[in-house]
Structures are given as C-alpha cells and as structure tokens.
Write a protein that binds this DNA or RNA. Structure first.
Length: 275
DNA sequence: CCTATAGCCTGACGGC
DNA sequence: TGCCGTCAGGCTATAG
C-alpha cells in the first residue's frame, strides 16, 4: 500500500495527531530488522532511538517520495526517517486494547495516547538521521514526483536517452521518487502508454502526456487520501485483479511483467508502444 | 547502461 | 483441515 499518496496521507495523519506531545516512552516489538543503520547494522539502535527521542516531541514533518521525515527541533537537530515498505502505516490510539497488530515501534505520549508504526512484513525502515535533505542526497533519490523543481523539462531530461522500459524508470526511485507499482500502472493507463515501451521511443507529446497524467493521478490520489475506493470510476486501480476489465472500454485487462513486477494494462487503450 | 533474479519477511489465497 | 506453492502497492545486491 505505501506509495507516495499513501505516505502523504500518513504524514498528514501524524501531523494532525502527534506533534508537540512529549514522548514519554518507546516500545520496540520484533523490530530489529527495521532499525538497521546505513550502512551496516548497529548493535543497539533501539537504545539509541530511545536516548534520542524520549522526553522530546515531534515538531514537524516532511515527505520525499515514499520516505517520511519527522523532526525534533529543540536543541539537537535530529530527524526520524520512516519508510513503510510493502505493507504498513501509522495508528494513533488511546486504549491499549486498540493497539494494532504488527505494531513494531510504539510511541507512548505523556498525554496517554500512543502512536504505532505498523509493519507487517518488516520490509520498511526506521532511521535516526540529521535531516531529510542530507538523507535524500546520500541515498541519491530523484526529485519527488510532485516537486516543483521537477517541471516538465526536468522530467523530460531525466528520461532522455534511456533505453529502459518506461515503467521501470517510473519505478526507479533514483529517477524520481514516490511512484510505486500500482500508481505507475495507473499513470501509464491514463496516459495510454504501454509499460514496456522504451523511454527513448516516446515522442515529446507522449512524455508530456505522461508528465501531466502523473500529476493528475498523484494529486487526485492524495486528495482522496489514497483510498482506492474513492478514486474516480475511470481509474484502473480498482480493477487490477485476475478477471479485471478496462473501466473505459470493457476489454479484459492484460498482465505483463516489467522489472519483475506485475503490470496490469488495457491492451486496447494502451497502444503507444504496444507494437 | 540495462535486465533479470534472489533475498529480505509475513500473511492471504487457491489447489489438492 | 493441513500442506504447498504463489503472490503481494519495496528495495538492494549481484550476475550476465
């Protein structure tokens, strides 16, 4: 679930619930794999996180692609970096009876509420860093898919000359950050572009359509708080299953592999690059 | 530079 | 019901 629109929804959720409250305590549950350091593992990251965060409060949030950054600004400049992997999220609650399953890292606020970082498969990551910008730089992430600096020209240049399949490029977080498997399919579907066409075989009009569609799709999804059921009827996302049908033309959806990930396509509506 | 694959984890689902 | 294989909205390392 967590692609950029989902992470953006979670960021707003954290912002609305958990800022400026003293972190009275932290609890880790089967979280070792999530707490690794870059680079290499650290013997007691949990201890270090507690030392760094307990007694302080979250102050601000940012997001870059699928990464969420939560900063604590009193005195030391420190930031918590959160990635949610394939399945995970946040939950704010009061009664421990409402603690969600797979709660791997819990913040116990002094006001009696709790914030859970949930990760079913432990494929996410928790990092204690100085600030988001430096982290993004170090990881060599591309610009956020909706960043202003990624205007059409910058987008075009990032795809220029690449002989990689267009969907693989959209998924590559070094090219641009935030698009995952589901939204890559959605964007390509809405733009009428086949996922396996090579980027250097798209003409400028295709690239422009792709850029504009990407904005439209991501902005719409954020607006709907990334709830798949609330997306427009014309969207592909709700139909990505075994016997799904194109919401536009009714054709049976096709399935292809790109970058070892499953792609759903409408063979009729995504002709650009299909032959 | 490009593609494919395995591995990290765990749960859900289908087939036998 | 139990067991097995496959798949899943991510990412990295590695090999060719």
């Amino acid at each position: 679930m967590p692609e950029m629109p989902d992470v953006e929804a979670m960021r707003r959720y954290l912002e609305a619930t958990s800022l400026h409250q003293e972190i009275g305590g932290m609890v880790f549950q089967s979280a070792n794999r999530l707490l690794g350091e870059d680079p290499g593992p650290h013997p007691d990251v949990g201890r270090r996180l507690k030392d760094a965060l307990e007694g302080r409060a979250f102050d601000d949030t940012e997001r870059h692609g699928k990464w969420m950054f939560v900063s604590l600004k009193d005195g030391r400049r420190q930031t918590l970096g959160l990635h949610f992997g394939m399945a995970g999220g946040l939950k704010y609650f009061r009664d421990m009876a409402d603690e969600p399953a797979y709660d791997r890292m819990r913040f116990d606020f002094s006001n009696g509420y709790h914030l859970a970082y949930v990760s079913t498969r432990k494929l996410g990551a928790v990092r204690l860093i100085e600030d988001g910008d430096a982290f993004v730089e170090r990881k060599d992430l591309g610009p956020d898919a909706l960043a202003e600096e990624l205007d059409f020209d910058a987008f075009r240049r990032r795809l220029e000359g690449r002989r990689t399949m267009i969907k693989a490029l959209l998924l590559d977080q070094h090219v641009l950050a935030g698009v995952g498997n589901v939204y890559a399919d959605e964007v390509l579907y809405q733009a009428g572009i086949h996922p396996r066409i090579k980027a250097n075989e798209l003409d400028v009009e295709d690239v422009r359509a792709l850029y504009e569609t990407m904005h439209e799709v991501l902005e719409t999804a954020i607006d709907k708080q990334a709830q798949p059921g609330d997306l427009p009827d014309s969207y592909l996302t709700a139909h990505r299953h075994e016997d799904g049908v194109c919401p536009r033309c009714g054709a049976a959806l096709g399935r292809v592999k790109v970058s070892s990930r499953r792609s759903y396509i409408c063979p009729k509506c995504q002709q650009t690059g299909s032959r």
